[in-house]
Design a protein around this nucleic acid. Structure first.
Lengths: 353, 353
DNA sequence: AGCATCATGGAAACCGGTGTCAGATTAAAG
DNA sequence: CTTTAATCTGACACCGGTTTCCATGATGCT
């Protein structure tokens, strides 16, 4: 039980105001305000006295009043148009971890990338709510006009993505290209000759980076990528199935497939099952993201663990960092590493056994 | 009139204030305020004149100022401690659908059910932010103390759940017991004699309802449920695997398993694969929720489609209904139906073929 | 017509903080 | 022992709405 209640709660919950604190501490509102806002030009002795009263009263400044006076809300927005539920939730988790214990809250705002009114909607949202800052999740984070809009309305922002698209203060990225190169190298080392690629949708930066990584690996091995071995999906399970069906009907059939995300990789496994192709004996599969589905299907997927939670946490810390914890928040990394998680979906090709 | 009007800001983006509207409409702030808040005692002609100016100016009241004056924020909170990412995201989607086009925003707040400070944390959250209302997601929605707390601090709330735990104004529920009875009936009709149950964690209302539905079906068929055919998981994939392993090692082995959610059902399929037991030829599986994983594993799962998005939308409408759209929001349903989705994971038992 | 009742709109206070700027204190310099 | 500068502190207006209180004109009733 919390024995913090020195404030007698009568019938009504009477929250202490800044005036109460000021009166009891024998100072003015303004001085209390200075204490709250960590103003440097303040006598230490005065500060302590006020802080003592604040503690005794259990006083917490009213966020609505502060928002009005400061013309800035203590809300961090998450703007996304991401089709992958798990990814969105991981990002939320990361942001909330960074915001825990602060006065900030998270408000979530999905947008429609294809809507002509998208930018106007976001502008209205930002101006109305006067958000402290926003985290932009890919793919919408790749939209430069959106970033400019944030600047314009005076809203801080941090973009998440698969490659550095902005300066360190506004970007938290992974290095997808490098990660995919390693994953593809792994397939090549296992002896695979015909490796199919299911790439992400056109216009997604991550799709491009991952394809480049794939090509990097082939090139390093002195191979070229035939057009027929490339299929495209839009990061959903269903398009993964369709793309895999095309690749699996090829003759000769690829013995391995790299899918640009786990959803599509799960689709590959599904399509293989439908055709009676054994995974990994006859077909090796690698995905990307390491979402739960990767570990929950049979066989569990070899995949690239995308540091999404850390990226989101880092992004949120960048936003509010200078407001809370001072140097504790410190300099947040702008690039976080991925790693290859090896599971049962990869084996040497049949011919190599 | 001593029009000590403010100096017009030239280049700066000056959002219209209530004073601008009042001046241009030739009325007082108060009158504009009455228009905004749909006060009934107002001349129709005056109202229209003011509304015209509002439209022309593109005026939108400042939410921060309203929040301060009204002592109530235009935020709807989502409080949850749900382990299932997909479910949380579906709920968010439903809430956002209900809030679209209104002045409300959604703030998400995960809590820790096991923390002793949970209630205090939530109280602080509600009092500080002065939320308009909250949606409570199971399992935390089953916590009566939490509902009482909301009442106490004057925060509206709507609970979501698997059974009616509260009056219609505060509850949106499905009827899990009935849905599971139907699902189990389906297994019985297919000819299964030994049906295993993987129930949800102790203390979850949904776990209890689903077990009761299971028992209802057996009882109606004149059977009893041996203790050995019941295993327990905590709604995660991993505990589903463990529970399934125990059931599959029984002799005689059950020919069908009902798992209380899809995650655990996916675990059952996984465990069966590990043991070389063919699904559905040697083992039928039914899950609950119809989350994406159900359709994305092989074989696709027969499952109960839980109307989670509609429930969340309905819950949010109940909260803000009287504020927006008047009767358009109308009376929201308090119970929404589930349905059995038949996929490939169920077949008659081997002996029956 | 005269008076009570009611609907309407305005001035000013208020919600609970923050910004500006001048005045008070104290320290350093002359 | 002044004078000057630097450091703290508080009075007051302000953020942009809502609400209270009251004056005003319109309406109803006898």
């Amino acid at each position: 039980m919390g024995a913090k209640g020195k404030v007698a709660k009568g019938t009504q919950t009477a929250r202490a105001t800044i005036n109460d604190v000021a009166r009891l501490a024998g100072v003015s509102k303004k001085t209390v305000s200075r204490v709250i806002n960590r103003s440097p030009l303040l006598n230490d002795e005065t500060r302590e006295r006020v802080e003592k009263v604040i503690r005794e009263l259990g006083y917490v400044p009213n966020p609505q009043a502060r928002a009005l006076a400061l013309r800035r809300n203590f809300l961090v927005g998450l703007i996304h148009d991401n089709p992958n539920a798990q990814m969105v939730l991981n990002v939320q988790q990361g942001i909330l971890e960074a915001l825990a214990g602060t006065e900030f809250e998270m408000v979530v705002r999905p947008v429609d990338r294809n809507s002509a009114a998208m930018l106007d909607d976001v502008r209205t949202f930002l101006e109305r709510q006067r958000l402290f800052g926003v985290v932009l999740l890919p793919p919408i984070s790749e939209n430069d006009a959106l970033a400019r809009l944030c600047d314009e309305v005076g809203c801080r922002y941090v973009r998440m993505g698969s490659a550095q698209l902005d300066d360190g203060a506004h970007m938290v990225a992974s290095n997808d290209r490098e990660a995919v190169r390693e994953a593809t190298d792994f397939l090549i080392q296992q002896g695979h000759e015909l490796i199919g690629l299911i790439e992400g949708p056109d216009g997604f930066r991550s799709a491009r980076e991952r394809r480049l990584g794939f090509e990097d690996a082939l090139e390093a091995a002195g191979r070229t990528l035939p057009r027929s071995l490339i299929a495209r999906g839009n990061y959903t399970f269903e398009t993964g199935v369709t793309a895999a069906e095309r690749l699996l009907d090829l003759s000769p059939r690829p013995t391995a497939i790299f899918a640009s995300n786990d959803e599509m990789a799960a689709g590959v496994v599904f399509a293989a099952r439908e055709r009676g192709i054994a995974v990994p004996e006859e077909l090796s599969v690698i995905g990307f993201d390491d979402t739960p589905i990767a570990a929950h299907i049979w066989p569990p997927l070899t995949t690239v663990r995308w540091p999404i939670v850390s990226m989101a946490r880092s992004a949120a810390r960048k936003l509010v960092g200078d407001m809370v914890g001072g140097q504790a928040a410190g300099e947040q990394p702008s690039e976080l590493p991925s790693m290859l998680v090896k599971r049962a979906s990869v084996a040497p090709p049949p011919s190599a056994s």
